Simulated assay, not measured.
Amino acid sequence: MFKRHAGLIAALAVHGASPAVAAENVLDELRFGASTSVQNRDAREQALPEVTFFVDPFEKRTANDWKARLVRPRIHFGTSIGIDHQPTQIFSGFSWTFDLSERAFVEAGFGGVWHDGPLGKTANGPGLGCRLLFHEYAGIGYKLDTHWNVLAQVSHSSHADLCDGPNGGMTRAGLQIGYKF
């Protein structure tokens, strides 16, 4: 599964890495890292690669206080790539970032996710009930310089009992490295 997605991710990363292309396409940040399940001690996933792109169509970077940043979220698009029969997720939504100091920041996001995991209960993982789920995350990060940052993040996806079937959800924690354009 990973090999099938690797070429696409590499092409997107190379295309998005150019500052000229980033400015032209409103690309604000690219993050890459890995996450693993934190919900079931008996059925651990291996570390799954993740890539997330952020765009800033509402010009959050021009907001000068927390109220202005609250109404100007960034939009994120990303994937958590399933390896060895683990579910792949493709997600999108809104993200809010708030500085705690010159270097430390917190971030939260909310949106939706499509996954290819099991819908019914299984011995190796949660039953997810339907293909489209809510997706939320929270993280705390540190800016290494004006471009690079590192973020520890916990994310959760479930359907909030809005569709038939089990609602085991997926909860993952991970570490990401970001590059702001």
Rank of each mutant, 00 (worst) to 15 (best):
6 A>K: 06
117 G>K: 00
78 G>W: 05
20 A>V: 13
94 F>K: 05
175 L>I: 13
145 D>K: 11
56 D>W: 04
79 T>K: 10
26 V>P: 09
58 F>H: 09
148 W>G: 07
7 G>Q: 03
74 R>Q: 01
15 H>R: 13
131 R>T: 01
17 A>S: 09
138 A>E: 07
23 A>M: 06
171 T>F: 09
23 A>L: 09
179 Y>F: 08
125 G>A: 03
17 A>K: 10
140 I>W: 01
34 A>Y: 06
26 V>W: 03
41 R>V: 14
50 E>F: 12
111 G>N: 04
16 G>K: 00
50 E>A: 14
52 T>F: 13
179 Y>P: 12
99 D>N: 14
127 G>V: 03
96 W>R: 02
161 D>H: 05
101 S>Y: 10
32 F>Q: 07
123 A>C: 13
115 H>E: 03
2 F>S: 07
56 D>Y: 05
15 H>Q: 15
137 Y>A: 10
118 P>C: 07
46 Q>G: 14
6 A>F: 13
76 H>I: 09
35 S>I: 12
42 D>E: 12
7 G>K: 01
149 N>L: 09
135 H>N: 08
15 H>L: 15
56 D>R: 01
16 G>T: 07
135 H>C: 06
135 H>E: 07
82 G>V: 02
72 R>Q: 05
48 L>C: 02
144 L>S: 06
125 G>I: 01
21 V>Y: 04
31 R>Y: 12
129 G>C: 00
171 T>P: 04
10 A>M: 08
170 M>W: 09
166 P>M: 01
92 S>F: 15
36 T>F: 13
22 A>I: 02
126 P>V: 04
89 Q>T: 09
136 E>A: 14
99 D>F: 14
148 W>H: 15
36 T>W: 12
10 A>G: 08
10 A>L: 07
117 G>D: 02
74 R>H: 02
162 L>R: 08
131 R>Q: 02
135 H>Y: 07
53 F>G: 13
120 G>A: 12
62 T>L: 14
89 Q>D: 12
176 Q>A: 15
52 T>G: 09
72 R>P: 06
152 A>H: 04
89 Q>W: 11
159 H>Y: 03
129 G>F: 00
36 T>L: 13
164 D>G: 13
51 V>E: 11
94 F>R: 08
8 L>E: 11
13 A>M: 11
145 D>G: 08
79 T>D: 07
157 S>T: 11
68 A>I: 06
23 A>P: 03
143 K>E: 05
43 A>C: 05
160 A>D: 01
136 E>S: 12
59 E>P: 08
116 D>F: 07
4 R>K: 14
161 D>L: 08
61 R>M: 08
152 A>V: 06
36 T>I: 08
80 S>W: 12
109 G>M: 08
165 G>R: 00
117 G>P: 03
29 E>R: 11
93 G>A: 01
92 S>N: 11
122 T>P: 07
179 Y>M: 07
40 N>Q: 06
9 I>L: 01
126 P>F: 08
98 F>R: 04
96 W>S: 02
69 R>D: 09
119 L>D: 02
53 F>E: 04
25 N>E: 11
77 F>M: 09
146 T>G: 15
4 R>M: 12
78 G>Y: 05
64 N>S: 13
24 E>V: 10
95 S>I: 06
5 H>S: 11
129 G>I: 00
23 A>E: 04
73 P>R: 06
153 Q>T: 14
64 N>W: 15
142 Y>Q: 05
92 S>W: 13
129 G>D: 00
110 F>W: 14
48 L>D: 03
27 L>D: 06
170 M>R: 11
